[in-house]
Amino acid sequence: MRIGCPKEVKDNEFRVGLTPAAARSYVDAGHEVVVEKGAGTGSGITDEEYKAAGAKILDTAKEVWSTADMIVKVKEPLPQEYDLMRENQLIYTYFHFAADETLTKTCLDKKIIAVAYETVQEADGSLPLLRPMSTIAGRMACLMGAYYLGKPHGGMGLLPTGVPGVAPANILVIGGGGVGSNAARVGAGLGAKVTILDVSPKVLENLTQIMPPNVFPLFSDSHTLEAELKEADIVVGAVLIPGAKTPKLVRKEHLKLMKPGSVIVDVAIDQGGCAETSKPTTHSDPVFVVDGVVHYCVANMPGAYSRTATFALSNNTIRYGLQIANKGVERACRENPALSKGLNMYKGVITYKPVAEAFGMEDLYKPLEEVI
């Protein structure tokens, strides 16, 4: 199989889909790897490193897309890439279809095979290809919140760490999964008072056991959420329903409860965001203000720490990618239930039900076993 890795085109996206080590793994398994010239520069990887790993460097994205059987990326195809996709071409990347109807319809029309990192799910419920980026985004969340609490950046001018005689910030984390737990740890490390909400008693019990003493796990309901929003200086949105649109837990009317100059960091924006007022932003224009509340909704947060993120992601994606390349996507999905959950589309039909439900496309959905 020919594996292709184009340069990412999203705003300030410096990650790349393959490291040289991953490229070597494909080559050693008997596959051909082509990489767009300069694709790894943003992650500190040179073309020479890819060549040393056995990959071939091509001058343009068009060459990579037109010759590869399987495209390995980081972010979803953007409009400038739509015409590069080919029928029956396998694309292995983050898609987040439920947050983007245009992308969903385009990929259906192009009849690609879409394997989405974010829905590959092991039997224990873990999301191994989402986890490394959730860890980075979670650890970034309170740092970004702290930065935008600064008065020059639109915030209230509160230092989250506090100082002797002045209290630290109150940080509210909504969701106790990978993003939420990492955000809570960093917030606690800053010295803030951190409240983390979740609806799972099992998750709350685990958080109680592993979190520092300035982290307070609470059961999430509407009353508790509203009470905590009133006190919060930073709110981290960390809600996830794998592959599905994120529920809007923070409503527009809730902003009136919040302090002027407080900050929402909506890490869930990839799947639509958990605040009703959230909309995707970019690293070059990361924030906007609604009703006095600063919103940070960058849809590719880990791209800011691209070298760490690229290597963390590739370390995890390569094992599933090799199964796809060695066996073909159909056999690989039949033999690996975790990987089968990552197959969101197959040659013009939707094979992951939450994507179909997000846009009322149930008529285009077929169970996986019917198509492979």
Rank of each mutant, 00 (worst) to 15 (best):
E81C: 11
A68T: 10
P213V: 07
M85N: 05
E253V: 10
H283Q: 14
F95G: 03
E362L: 15
V267H: 09
T308Y: 11
K62Y: 13
A146P: 12
E122R: 14
M133H: 08
A169S: 14
G348W: 08
Y117Q: 07
Y82H: 13
G154R: 10
K51I: 13
E253N: 13
E276F: 08
T41L: 15
M133W: 04
I57D: 00
G348R: 08
I57M: 08
E205Y: 12
Y50T: 03
S126D: 02
K10R: 15
P164F: 15
S126T: 11
G42D: 07
K245M: 09
K353P: 02
T317A: 08
M345L: 15
K7M: 10
Y147V: 11
S284L: 06
L229F: 05
P132V: 06
G125N: 04
E357C: 00
L103W: 06
R2A: 03
L204R: 13
T135Y: 02
D198A: 08
T19A: 08
L143I: 15
A183P: 11
E32K: 15
L190W: 13
V34S: 05
P217C: 10
G138I: 00
R15A: 01
D285H: 14
G180N: 09
A238R: 03
T208F: 06
A338Q: 11
A146C: 12
V298D: 00
T119P: 07
M345K: 07
E8N: 05
R251E: 13
L322H: 04
V289R: 14
N206G: 09
A338T: 13
P247G: 01
K279G: 00
E335H: 06
V329Y: 13
V371F: 12
K110Y: 10
D233M: 12
I324C: 05
Q80D: 12
G154Q: 04
A68M: 07
Q80K: 14
L172V: 05
P6H: 04
V263D: 10
V163F: 15
K73H: 04
E228T: 04
M156D: 06
V287M: 07
V293S: 11
H283A: 14
F97Y: 15
H153C: 00
A39N: 06
V120R: 04
L249Q: 03
V72H: 12
D221Q: 03
V194F: 03
R185M: 15
A338M: 09
V163W: 11
F97Q: 10
A268D: 10
V194A: 09
V289T: 15
V290E: 14
C297A: 15
Y365C: 03
G292N: 09
E13W: 07
I91K: 03
H254K: 01
A299R: 08
A169P: 02
M211D: 00
V215R: 06
F216R: 14
D11G: 03
R307I: 01
P212F: 02
Q80H: 09
K248R: 13
D266E: 12
